[in-house]
């Protein structure tokens, strides 16, 4: 029996520190090829403990492949990965203790009940039976699946299965969460609950890496965004830095002529968009200054809002040239 088989605390918990090296997820120049297809070309990112890091990118950008490498399922062809300082290739079992992975489209054993699925996972993580039972009830409450605990997993809706997948990822108290499209299939209330759950876990010190196509939600949830496209890292930015990004604002006014005159006077380039006008502004400060100017112009502004959310704008700008 190797030392890995010795009973260990079921996950070190969010407060468990790395055995050596950097805490959280560090990906450096990773590449992975399947035959002729380059799924991941050159991705680098850092996801820190206590933060929610969003991994965003178009379909086929390499997000899921990267997450499979982080989940100790695939070996990168090139580059390096560490999770809490541990290389998932050389010591996958140590990494597995620390990570909670939720794949896109969580599959489950149809014949088992929700509770049995989690008991089985607990046993697979060496949790003592009593602790597995207790933890099961805790995570069922966290993901609001308590009422469905004795239902067969096969009768769950897609959203309920996603919540079960989340419960499975949390069961052994991982220090790092790797979540592939966790909000997919969730109803609005469940999405809000997921957002709050991830924020609370991050606040407790967990490293959270989450991929999603729903950028508005990521903006509310994430501290940092890593934009990938074509298998490469395009941009990494703090989400609170997004308001400084260039984005399009849409303005509606009762007097459109005066609005256009005011924009010309302020030397702002504008585009007609139906009865409204679009302008490109470099950040929220510039938008606030323009709004103050328009207020005194007599244009009688009725609507003034960005066309895209800050993260959407950053994403669109970053991926525009790759289209």
């Amino acid at each position: 029996m190797s030392s890995d088989d010795a009973p260990v605390p079921p996950g070190d918990g969010p407060t468990g520190g790395p055995p050596g090296g950097a805490a959280g997820i560090v990906v450096t120049g990773v590449r992975r090829v399947f035959g002729d297809v380059v799924a991941v070309d050159d991705i680098s990112l850092v996801a820190r403990p206590g933060e929610v890091t969003a991994l965003i990118g178009p379909n086929g950008a390499g997000k899921t492949t990267l997450m499979l490498m982080l989940a100790t399922l695939l070996v990168p062809d090139r580059g390096a990965i560490t999770i809490d300082g541990i290389d998932p290739v050389t010591d996958p079992r140590a990494v597995r203790r620390r990570i909670g992975w939720m794949p896109d489209g969580f599959g489950t054993w149809d014949a088992l009940t929700v509770r049995e699925v989690l008991h089985t996972i607990g046993a697979a993580y060496d949790l003592p039976a009593a602790e597995a039972r207790a933890r099961t009830e805790e995570v069922l409450a966290q993901v609001h699946l308590g009422d469905l605990a004795d239902r067969r997993a096969r009768v769950l809706s897609r959203g309920q299965k996603q919540r079960l997948g989340m419960a499975r990822a949390l069961l052994h108290r991982p220090t790092t969460l790797i979540l592939d499209e966790p909000a997919s299939g969730l109803d609005p209330r469940s999405r809000i609950e997921l957002r709050d759950l991830l924020r609370s876990l991050a606040a407790a010190g967990t490293t959270v890496l989450v991929s999603s196509h729903i950028l508005t939600e990521l903006q509310e949830m994430a501290d940092r965004a890593v934009i990938v496209a074509g298998g490469r890292t395009i941009e990494t930015q703090a989400v609170d830095g997004a308001p400084r990004a260039l984005r399009t604002w849409r303005i509606a006014a009762q007097d459109r002529t005066r609005l256009v005159e005011a924009l010309d006077a302020a030397a702002v380039v504008w585009r007609a968009a139906g009865t409204t006008v679009d302008v490109d502004l470099a950040g929220d400060d510039e938008a606030a200054e323009l709004l103050a100017g328009l207020a005194g112009s007599g244009a009688r502004v009725t609507a003034y809002a960005p066309v895209h959310g800050a993260m959407e704008a950053a994403y669109l700008a970053a991926t525009e040239e790759r289209r």
Binding site: T72, L73, I99, T108, W109, A124
Partner: peptide, 14 residues
């Protein structure tokens, strides 16, 4: 095919 093999492979089960 049912997506449960990888679920088990990412636990401590060898």
């Amino acid at each position: 095919e049912h997506g449960v093999l990888a679920t088990m492979q990412t636990t401590l089960v060898t």
